[in-house]
Deep mutational scan, measured.
Amino acid sequence: EPEARKIVEKLINNGLSPEDVKRWAEKNNNPEVKKAAEEYQKR
């Protein structure tokens, strides 16, 4: 999901860690963003 990846990169560029992004995604019920954050961590 390229859109989710863009969101993850934007949040990380704004100073969030991938863990923060995953928590944000869970709080906002956004499994695509959570998955993208996990993939981002593996890179």
Rank of each mutant, 00 (worst) to 15 (best):
G15F: 03
E9H: 09
N13G: 12
A4G: 05
D20E: 13
N13A: 15
S17N: 07
E32T: 09
N28R: 04
K27N: 12
K27R: 09
W24A: 05
E19V: 06
I7C: 11
N14G: 12
N14C: 14
R43S: 14
G15D: 02
S17V: 01
K34M: 14
Y40K: 03
V33D: 01
V8T: 03
E19A: 08
V8F: 13
V33T: 01
E1Y: 13
N28T: 13
E38H: 04
E9V: 09
V8L: 13
L16A: 08
R5Y: 11
N30I: 12
P2V: 15
R23G: 05
E38W: 01
V8I: 07
A4S: 07
W24E: 05
K22Q: 10
K35D: 07
E19G: 06
P18D: 03
K34D: 03
K42S: 10
P18T: 09
E38A: 05
Y40Q: 04
N13W: 07
N13H: 12
K27S: 12
K27V: 13
R43H: 12
K34I: 12
I7P: 00
P2T: 15
K42I: 08
K10I: 14
E32L: 12
A36S: 05
E38F: 03
K27C: 13
E32N: 09
A36F: 08
E9Q: 11
E9C: 12
K34A: 13
L16V: 07
R5H: 11
K27E: 15
K34S: 10
E19M: 06
D20W: 09
K10G: 10
E9A: 09
P31Q: 11
E26A: 01
K34E: 07
E32F: 08
L11S: 00
V33C: 03
P31F: 10
Q41K: 07
V21Y: 01
K35T: 08
R5N: 10
K35F: 07
E1K: 11
K10A: 14
N30K: 14
K27F: 09
N14W: 09
S17D: 09
K42D: 12
K27H: 11
P31C: 11
K10C: 14
K27G: 09
I7M: 09
L11E: 02
